Simulated assay, not measured.
Amino acid sequence: MRLLLVEDDNHVAAALSAVLARHGFAVTHARSGEEALQALVPESDGYDVILLDLGLPDQDGYEVCGKIRKRTATPVIMVTARSDVRSRIHGLNLGADDYVVKPYDTGELLARIHAVSRRTHHEDGTADGDDALRLGAVHIELPTRQVSVDGKVVQLTRKEFDLLALLAQRPGVVFRREQIISEVWRTSWEGTGRTLEVHVASLRAKLRRPALIETVRGVGYRLVAPAG
């Protein structure tokens, strides 16, 4: 498994690279945001995961994450000392797949790396040509992870698509907030609840169908299938 490690501290990078190598990872080390972006040219099809430290010398880590997400769908795990909820939410909304706070347990970091990698490979491996969901004017292609409304493609983030696909596979069924957070974010972290609300609001706006996703107060959300 190939991993891009974006970390400006050479001592931290060397220690972590040694651990990752012992667990079968081929690590490429980038010391700045610019080096990280150069490593993704033309695109990082060869990388399975990107570990991104936010405290970079040349660019803000959040800015780098946004640029990475425009270039590739490779999973990004932010690794940082910023532990406040707003920082986590901001990182996730920029397209990060996970967020690990320093100091972290190496075993947990490895588990998170494997988790995001498994999810991505599962998504990419969905090959059934008829794996499509239609909800009135909303068309969801599961194999290509593409969503269109009235025939026009709508750009969704990874998590927005995961959330929509989860609800759309069982229209009318109420999904508890805890269940959604567990299945989409693969965590039971309490602060993710606020991120869920942000993603629901974003989906309603992008799909231009505010009534498509219904809030069931005190419980969670359900997708309301269009009449007819």
Rank of each mutant, 00 (worst) to 15 (best):
M1H: 07
M1A: 12
L3C: 07
L4A: 02
L5A: 03
V6A: 04
D8R: 06
A15V: 15
L16V: 04
H23I: 10
H23Q: 13
G24H: 11
V27I: 09
V27W: 02
H29Y: 06
G33I: 02
G33L: 01
G33E: 03
E34M: 08
E34W: 03
E35M: 12
L37W: 00
P42L: 03
E43Y: 03
S44V: 10
Y47V: 12
I50Q: 02
L51D: 01
L52T: 00
D53W: 03
D53A: 05
L56V: 04
L56H: 01
P57I: 06
G61R: 01
Y62M: 08
V64N: 00
G66D: 01
K67V: 01
T72F: 00
A73F: 08
A73M: 08
M78A: 09
A81Y: 13
S83P: 03
D84R: 15
D84I: 12
D84V: 10
V85I: 10
R86W: 09
S87V: 06
R88W: 02
H90Q: 12
G91S: 04
G91P: 00
N93W: 04
V100E: 05
V101M: 07
Y104K: 09
H114K: 15
H114I: 10
H114F: 12
H114D: 14
S117I: 08
S117L: 06
S117K: 13
R118P: 03
R119A: 15
R119K: 11
H121P: 01
E123I: 05
G125Q: 08
A127H: 14
D130V: 06
D130R: 11
D131G: 14
D131W: 08
A132F: 08
R134I: 13
R134M: 10
L135K: 05
I140N: 00
P143H: 06
V147A: 00
V147M: 08
V149K: 09
G151P: 08
K152Y: 08
K152I: 15
K152V: 14
V153D: 07
Q155K: 13
L156P: 01
T157C: 02
K159D: 14
E160Q: 15
F161P: 07
L164V: 07
L164R: 13
L167K: 10
A168Y: 03
Q169K: 15
R170Y: 13
P171G: 04
G172M: 05
G172E: 07
V173E: 14
V174S: 07
I180R: 04
S182T: 15
V184I: 11
V184A: 06
E190N: 11
E190P: 07
G191D: 13
G191H: 07
G191E: 15
T192S: 10
R194C: 05
T195D: 12
E197W: 04
E197R: 11
H199G: 01
L203M: 11
R204E: 07
A205F: 09
L207Q: 07
P210R: 07
A211P: 00
A211T: 12
A211R: 13
L212D: 05
I213R: 02
E214Y: 03
T215V: 13
R217W: 13
G218D: 02
L223G: 04
L223H: 03
A225K: 10
A227G: 06
G228H: 12
